[in-house]
Amino acid sequence: MSYYDPKDLRKFGRITEWSETLGEKFFDYYNSVFKEGALTPREKSLIALAVAHTEMCPYCIDAYTKDGLERGITKEEMMEAVHVGAAIKSGASLVHGVMMMNKVNKLDS
């Protein structure tokens, strides 16, 4: 038994039961974000998939993999999106190496 149960994703909407106003505000916002805007829903779906991976959210990975398939997004496109997320995540770690270099340069004459 894992802490994560795939069936719990279906219960996501129930968060409004314990805080209706905030829950509804969240879902209104969420639904507005994914509507057609300056970006297409297809582009937004790929961004969501990449972020789902960097956040390591199993529910979001399930949801946006399915969403991508429904939109006709290919597995190659999905994997490239995941690599974009992974590249930013690793870059975000690596760029801190500059802090380490700064510190070494300051401390070690």
Partner: peptide
Amino acid sequence: FLPGDQDDL
């Protein structure tokens, strides 16, 4: 999975 938006497809 379900089909996506018909016009987009």
